[in-house]
Design a protein around this nucleic acid. Structure first.
Length: 468
DNA sequence: TGAAATGTTGGGGCG
DNA sequence: ACGCCCCAACATTTC
């Protein structure tokens, strides 16, 4: 009987997995292997590593229920795979294609010496299949999404029968899955991903259009970590939400589901941008904004990281990130805008910090989001679009519940002052048990002034680089 | 997937 | 009845 390898990278699922399907564990001996690659692990945030390791454990359990098991190896993937091919006599390696620059270099090197077959699955549509009539990639979201929606849909989900996997031969050895703390708010694994998708599509998605912006509500899907490691297949999620759109009870509900589909398409858009323009991981997409003179003040950067800038919504979000390894999407936009446009700190510093913190940290989405906020990317927010943290608070955390949840110092501050506590009269501060400048910091910058400085800096870069 | 500055409109108080 | 002013509400422009 033929033996092949299923090389798992960021497709930690049995359901709707083209690589596993093609490897064919019912008719061939399939060795599921995950390689702990030091080059990748050194970049992974601690919490993201924990989420990954817990996901491997959960995948191993599912494989054992199917009669198989997960094989763990550590080292350079090319060397480890050739060793495993020798040990097992495997005739082929099947893996889901990954579009990051590192992954592509790695896979190319592997494919030179070993029979590697890459299968699509990280996105609903492959980055190469969504293109303009002349074959070039889209760099603006709206036309991209229109073309994306017009493409013929991939065929419906198919699954390998889970109870009939041929066992992995005994002599194939495996390292132990590294221990990791479990993350209370994000239990790892494809069962949890499925539960969350069901729960979300059963009704919360109907309110998504408005609720997703509210920091004080659970309006988002909270599926990003599961997408990040392929515990949920894009195809499965997209086909399910398309079904929800079809069967929506009314136009309000349909609008909610369509908005979420659009967010999934944003994810694919950024995967596609990184695939076609890998240099965005090193510099701004827009050449005329590569000469901004940043003011990378280390103390302000540090205040931003630890959530003590004096702007409650920024601080609450940064503390949420530090605690959960996850931040609400609107919080990401607000904190990013604050770092770049209020503190005038290079967006790449923020990008790097988020990658070090986020459970869902994905090179394409994270880079796309930061370039968008900084206004230096494809289809980016115009450079003059600057979030006012106070107004954002009044709009998206109207009672201040989110701020109070994450900033205990402000828990007795009234609604009137919760987003601008520095305006509290002394008497009010005493009543709230929160003296500004003592229990909670004064703002590190004054927003209106900071805004002017940033507009100048951006204009200057454009003047310098557009030669006029 | 902004916010501030500036412009326009229209209701109502008042002489 | 009419013009004038004030100003809130909304719309448009600008950064």
């Amino acid at each position: 009987m033929q033996t092949v390898i299923w090389w798992i990278r960021r497709d930690l699922r049995l359901k709707d997995n083209q690589a596993l399907q093609t490897a064919d564990p019912v008719n061939r001996v399939v060795i599921p292997v995950f390689i702990l690659d030091p080059n990748l692990l050194k970049r992974e945030a601690e919490k993201r590593k924990a989420f990954l390791f817990n996901g491997l454990r959960s995948l191993d359990e599912r494989l054992r229920e199917s009669g198989s098991r997960l094989v763990i190896r550590a080292g350079n993937p090319e060397e480890e795979l050739s060793r495993l091919v020798k040990e097992s006599g495997a005739a082929g390696i099947f893996a889901e294609e990954d579009y990051t620059p590192y992954a592509r270099r790695r896979d190319q090197a592997v494919a030179e010496n070993l029979p590697l077959n890459l299968l699509a699955g990280l996105t609903f549509h492959h980055p190469r299949s969504v293109s303009k009539p002349d074959g070039s990639p889209y760099t603006v979201f709206t036309p991209y999404s229109k073309a994306w929606k017009k493409l013929p849909q991939p065929s419906a989900v198919r699954n390998v029968p889970p109870d009939r996997f041929i066992p992995v031969p005994e002599h194939i050895q495996s390292l132990a899955i590294p221990d990791a703390l479990s993350l209370e708010d994000f239990p790892s694994g494809e069962d949890e991903a499925e539960r969350r998708l069901r729960d979300f599509l059963a009704g919360r998605v109907y309110d998504y259009r408005e609720a997703r912006n509210r920091l004080d509500m659970k309006g988002t899907s909270s599926l990003s970590p599961y997408f990040r490691f392929g515990m949920l297949s894009s195809r499965y999620a997209v086909l399910n939400v398309m079904d929800t759109i079809q069967n929506a009870p009314n136009s309000y509900a349909r609008a909610g589901a369509e908005t979420w589909l659009n967010e999934l398409i944003w994810r694919e858009f950024y995967q596609s941008i990184l695939y076609h323009f890998p240099e965005v991981s090193r510099r701004a997409f827009r050449a005329e904004l590569r000469a901004i003179e940043w003011n990378n003040d280390p103390e302000k950067f540090s205040a931003w990281k630890s959530g003590v800038t004096g702007y409650p919504l920024v601080d609450a979000s940064m503390r949420q990130l530090a605690t959960l390894g996850w931040m609400h999407n609107r919080g990401r936009m607000i904190t990013a805008s604050f770092l770049v446009k209020d503190l005038l700190i290079n967006w790449q510093r923020g990008e790097e910090w988020f990658m070090r913190q986020l459970i869902d940290g994905d090179p394409a989405s994270n880079n796309g989001g930061w370039q968008w906020t900084a206004g230096v990317g494809t289809d980016a927010a115009p450079y003059f679009r600057i979030f006012n943290p106070v107004l954002q608070g009044k709009k998206f955390d109207p009672e201040g519940a989110f701020v109070r949840e994450w900033i205990p110092e402000l828990s007795n501050v009234t609604q009137r002052y919760i987003h601008e506590p520095w305006t509290m009269p002394a008497e009010e501060q005493r009543k709230a048990g929160c003296v500004i400048g003592k229990h909670y910091p004064l703002p590190v910058v004054e927003h209106i002034q900071a805004r002017e400085r940033t507009l100048e800096a951006y204009k200057h870069s454009k003047d310098v680089l557009s030669g006029g």
